[in-house]
Design a protein around this nucleic acid. Structure first.
Length: 279
DNA sequence: AAACAGGCCTAAA
DNA sequence: TTTAGGCCTGTT
């Protein structure tokens, strides 16, 4: 990968495995949206950006300094996904899955945002999850300005910790409101130290997260994978259950994918949801 | 209209 | 330790 400043954008060239649609629409994040030209805009880690592909280059709004301090890490650009795809190609089904999903990457998302977002995601569909999170950010997040437009950062835990269930009723997120507030209180008070969790192994961090009401096995695994960037976490939702049942034995163990089980999961999930593996 | 949606919690075996 | 029913809300 090479990069250089081009007016208000940074141009990345020679980027391998970088497909905007697969990265943003594979189900891992909820705050990026594309316009009719395929230009994505969104907010991560308190920064707004626009990002687009033109021919073989990726253009990200902002300076080289922004790119180096924020986006390079966020997009996990120093990891060789091509190599990982080869490693995960362990049987016919996985080869098809990684081939189909080539170009997706696991974003290194902000920890608290991941916790809160995946609490909201439970028993919900993506459009509604995105709508709720957008409303939450508009109401409680700091304003961010980019290119004459206003964006909103993900609200800090201390802000949400002081809200009542009634204060969140406008979100219409139902029983999840209480979970959000409890999680915000736990993080704000220091009872749950997300930075410290990042240093534990997957099993210990899962257990710490599952101590929160409203965080079960699936949600906790999503938080560990997408928020703590532990690539061996393996979230299993209904789609994953289905695809595992179709392609593996009852004694299936994600350990067969080694330390990249979480990435394997994302290829499987994306492939399963596409419905392409049925035909 | 009733069931379901990218789970979780609680009560009950 | 496993299973059933209920939960907010929006959609089909």
């Amino acid at each position: 990968m090479r990069y250089r400043q081009r007016k208000g954008e940074v141009e990345l060239s020679d980027v391998r495995d970088f497909d905007l649609v697969r990265i943003f629409e594979c189900g891992q994040c909820f705050r990026w949206n594309s316009d009719e030209y395929g230009v994505y805009s969104g907010v991560a880690l308190g920064y707004a950006a626009k990002i687009r592909r033109e021919n073989d280059s990726i253009f990200i709004s902002g300076s080289v300094a922004d790119f180096e301090s924020i986006w390079r890490d966020y997009f996990d650009l120093d990891r060789d996904y091509e190599e990982i795809r080869k490693m995960l190609c362990i049987d016919e089904y996985m080869c098809a899955a990684v081939n189909f999903g080539a170009g997706l990457r696991i974003l290194r998302q902000e920890k608290w945002e991941a916790l809160c977002s995946f609490i909201i995601s439970q028993c919900n569909n993506i459009p509604r999850i995105k709508k709720i999170i957008d409303a939450l950010c508009r109401a409680f997040g700091e304003e961010i300005y980019l290119g004459g437009e206003t964006y909103y950062a993900f609200p800090k835990p201390e802000i949400l910790a002081e809200q009542s269930i009634n204060d969140l009723s406008f979100l219409r997120c139902g029983y999840r409101a209480a979970y959000i507030i409890e999680a915000a209180k736990a993080v704000h008070s220091g009872i749950l130290d997300l930075n410290r969790l990042a240093e534990l192994n997957v099993s210990d961090s899962l257990n710490a997260l599952k101590a929160l009401k409203g965080v079960g096995d699936k949600v906790a695994n999503c938080i560990v994978l997408f928020g703590l960037s532990k690539l061996d976490a393996f979230p299993v939702d209904v789609w994953m259950k289905k695809t595992i049942a179709e392609h593996y034995d009852k004694d299936f163990d994600p350990k067969i994918f080694g330390s990249y089980a979480g990435i394997a999961q994302q290829y499987m999930f994306y492939y399963a949801r596409s419905g392409f593996n049925k035909h």
